[in-house]
């Protein structure tokens, strides 16, 4: 299946590229991000677990949420504002 991924917080996801990614059926958000890392040759540091948040088809999502085919995944920073 394919997922359209947009990395909004580019400074926290440097090297990862916006676009369509092919992932296995039933992939989670973490699986999608891992596939993006593999394709782009980038490994995010472990602290990103707490520094990123997600919107899946416009709704708040977690790392372990299942991603449906054709979904749009926004990758956003979790620490906001001031």
């Amino acid at each position: 299946m394919t997922v359209n991924v947009k990395f909004v917080c580019k400074d926290l996801t440097e090297g990862l590229v916006n676009g369509e990614y092919d992932v296995s059926d039933g992939a989670t958000v973490r699986g999608v991000v891992s596939e993006c890392e593999r394709v782009c040759g980038v490994t995010l540091p472990p602290e990103r677990d707490k520094q990123l948040q997600f919107l899946l088809n416009g709704k708040s999502a977690q790392w372990d949420y299942a991603v449906p085919d054709g979904a749009k995944l926004h990758v956003l920073r979790a620490i906001l504002g001031g």
């Binding site: 909004v8 917080c9 926290l12 602290e47 990103r48 708040s60 920073r77 620490i79 906001l80 504002g81």
Partner: peptide, 24 residues
Amino acid sequence: PVAAVVAVMGAHGTGNGYEDSILV
């Protein structure tokens, strides 16, 4: 552990997450 967050806050200030904030 917070290097990336500090770096972006230092570079772009408290408004670094304006787009993210609107989307979420």
